[in-house]
Amino acid sequence: MHKSYETVPVGSIDPAYQRYRLGQPSFDVENLKDAINRSGLIHPVVVKPVPEGKYGLVVGFRRYDAVKKLGHSHIDAIILGPDEEWDEKKFDLECLKFAITERSCQRPLDVFELLCAIERLKDHLDVQEIVAISPAVFNQVLNPSIVRQYIRMAGLSENLRVLMSTGRLSVKPALMLSDIPTEQADVFGAVFSKISLSSSNQKDVIQLSLEISSRDKKPVKQIFSNDPFLQILKDDHLDPRAKGKKIKEMIAELRFPHLTQARNTFTKTCRSLGLSGRIQLTPPKNFEGLDYSLSFQFQSLSEFESCLKKLDQLSGDEQFRRLFP
């Protein structure tokens, strides 16, 4: 690839050309502006010629923004040009690799950047080819399954990518969202931006909500835009973790109303019978089997005798008997 160092007019750079931007646009360039004011532009931006006699940025989007805001008329730039035998596609691929390499050699790419990078590389390369160039371009060895996952997530909306880069959406739930229509996926994005849940709980919420939506023949949006979900999401007194816990419980209850009710009734009855402390009664899993189990803890003979006495009383208790269908 040809490189020439020039000072070009800031106005000759097309700000709408975003092909090689990997991260999210950063609007806070104040510190960078100060630094450029003090020391000048240490690293020139990298550009390539684009139609209408303009340049498109390959590297240095923030630097360009800062220089523009400073009101400078010109900016130092490295201008990339294709080798003789390259067509436009090959040139695009090399510029893309250049942009990714430049970023990944500074620090490991975050999820958002990886998504952008792999999404664009897949226009040129297959999974194995991306894996092969990964040490040099990504500064890390990407395995094929990771590359495939990122390709699968290529259709995720900007909102969901931002959530991923801020750690509010994990890869596995994001993969689930990449398989459903964007409009639905964005509903989950909006919910997850307000609550905090582990990856597996996010997956559960997505799975159960989609099942409720199919069962009740109503869009996912309708589930979360109604009370009591809306109330919880808007409750300023609850922290995101508490909101997440409540939302997960409510979705499970909506999906499995009878099972939830049976569990709640059992737990409540056990509590009122004093069977939730040192004496514990456990029902069959999901109330499916036939075997109940009873355990108790004691530290002395008198505690042991007191447990036995309690158990003896229980067998004649009507409330206790009603626990067993």
């Binding site: 199919s214 069962r215 109303p257 099972l259 049976a262 999901n286 499916e288």
Partner: peptide
């Protein structure tokens, strides 16, 4: 929507409706 009933994992590792 046949899979979206109230199923639990049975003792034979098949999904089956909640017993009640």
């Amino acid at each position: 929507d046949i899979c979206y009933g109230e199923f639990i994992l049975g003792l034979d590792n098949k999904m089956r409706y909640f017993k009640p």
